[in-house]
Amino acid sequence: MPADMVVLVATAVLACVAVVAALVALRAARQVARHQHADAPSPAEPATPAAVAVRDPEPQQAPREVRVVEGRVIVPPSREEVVSTALSRPQVRLAVLLHGVARALRPESRDRIGALVRREYRDRRRHRLRSGRRAARAAHLAVDPTPPSAHWLGEADGRAEDRAIGA
Rank of each mutant, 00 (worst) to 15 (best):
Q36H: 07
R110Y: 08
L23N: 09
D56A: 08
R64M: 07
R34F: 08
D123M: 09
V20R: 14
V17E: 15
L97Y: 15
A53M: 14
A138P: 00
V68H: 04
A22H: 14
P59V: 01
D123E: 13
V19C: 03
A135S: 07
H140Q: 11
H151F: 08
E70Q: 11
V20K: 12
A40N: 11
R130S: 07
A135Q: 12
P148C: 00
L94S: 05
H127L: 14
V143R: 14
D144H: 09
P107Q: 14
L87H: 08
H127T: 10
Q36W: 01
E120T: 14
A104N: 06
P76L: 05
R30W: 14
V54Y: 11
R103Y: 02
R133I: 04
I74W: 10
V32D: 13
R30I: 04
V83P: 01
P43S: 15
R79L: 06
V69T: 07
A18H: 13
L97C: 12
D123K: 08
A44D: 15
E65K: 05
A47T: 15
V69K: 07
S78M: 09
L98W: 04
P90Q: 07
E80C: 11
V32C: 12
G154R: 00
H151M: 00
R55K: 09
L153P: 05
R106Q: 14
S109H: 02
R118G: 03
R72S: 03
